[in-house]
Amino acid sequence: MKQFIDFIPLILFFIVYKISPQAVDVLGHSFMVGGIYSATAMLIASSLVVYGVLYVRQGKLEKSQWLTLIACLVFGSLTLAFHSETFLKWKAPVVNWVFALIFAGSHFIGDRLLIQRIMGHALTLPQAVWTKLNIAWIVFFLFCGAANLYVAFTYQEFWVDFKVFGSLGMTLLFLVGQGIFLARHIHDADPSTQPSNKKRED
């Protein structure tokens, strides 16, 4: 479920983006609603609300959530300040590549791989399987970053659709694949499936 919380602001961003630009009067002030810039403002505001609520309820945010929030604030603010959507186009690639770097760094820093720290409380797996799983996450984030960058600057009319539904689809497919992978290997660490070394009594 945590993986999909990040998509709430993105979905709201998509909805506002798809609205035909129009002026809306609020308390005597006129605001433009619809299009990339009002959608960016919605992305920033909804991210602050979503992660603010999580922070109040949990008393903290995970590092990945802090990274996502900070990236949203930085790239979203630059988009509005310079009135250029180019900054927002770089948000998804940069965030994905930073995640890939963090997962890769756990191979050299710390006593456990990052995926093992995240899922180790719920699963017991052979170390070789944890390594493969961590590498899979690195490849996934590298691919997502590259895909977002390619679509954003090559198919500009579709980049917002891909940013939301393409990223969501890739995440769902990867999690399904991870589930299948774990189902094949989880028994390797189950003591009940290991051969017994106990000698049979005559």
Rank of each mutant, 00 (worst) to 15 (best):
Y51R: 03
I70C: 08
Y17E: 05
E62R: 07
F174A: 03
L12S: 10
D161V: 02
K18W: 01
A147Y: 10
L73V: 09
E201C: 08
A152Q: 06
I135K: 01
Q156N: 13
P21I: 01
T171W: 01
K63Q: 14
F140D: 00
S38W: 00
K60L: 09
N96W: 04
G59E: 06
F174S: 03
D202H: 15
D25W: 05
G28K: 08
H107M: 14
S192D: 15
L114V: 04
A122P: 01
N134M: 07
A100W: 07
A122E: 12
T171L: 14
N96S: 15
L27E: 10
Q65F: 10
A23H: 02
G169M: 04
P9Q: 04
F87N: 13
I180C: 01
L12Q: 00
L88S: 11
K132T: 04
I11Y: 09
V164N: 06
A23L: 07
D188I: 05
V50R: 02
M1V: 12
I115Q: 02
H29A: 10
G166H: 08
V49W: 02
Y51I: 09
H107E: 12
F75Y: 15
S64W: 11
F174M: 07
M32C: 07
G177T: 01
V49Y: 06
I5T: 13
E201S: 14
N197V: 11
M170C: 15
G120C: 12
F140Y: 12
P195K: 05
A136D: 00
K91T: 07
T124K: 15
C72Y: 10
F140S: 03
A23K: 12
W159Q: 11
N134R: 10
V160L: 03
F162G: 10
P9F: 04
L172Y: 02
M42N: 00
H121E: 15
V56E: 00
E157M: 06
S47Q: 05
T79E: 09
M170D: 00
V53N: 02
D190N: 14
Y17I: 05
S64V: 14
L61V: 06
C72R: 02
I186G: 10
L69Q: 08
F82G: 05
L168V: 09
W130L: 06
Q194M: 13
L54G: 00
L48R: 01
F13P: 04
T79M: 06
F165H: 08
I138A: 03
A81G: 03
D188V: 02
V56L: 11
N96R: 02
I135V: 11
G28V: 03
S30N: 06
I36H: 08
K18D: 00
V33Y: 07
P9G: 09
W90V: 08
R184P: 03
F99S: 05
Q116W: 09
V24G: 00
V98G: 01
Q22E: 10
A146N: 02
C144P: 00
I19Q: 06
W159K: 07
D111N: 12
A100N: 05
Q22R: 13
Q58S: 14
I118H: 01
M42L: 04
G120R: 13
L54R: 07
A23C: 03
F143E: 02
K18P: 00
E62W: 02
V24S: 01
S192K: 14
L142T: 03
G177A: 06
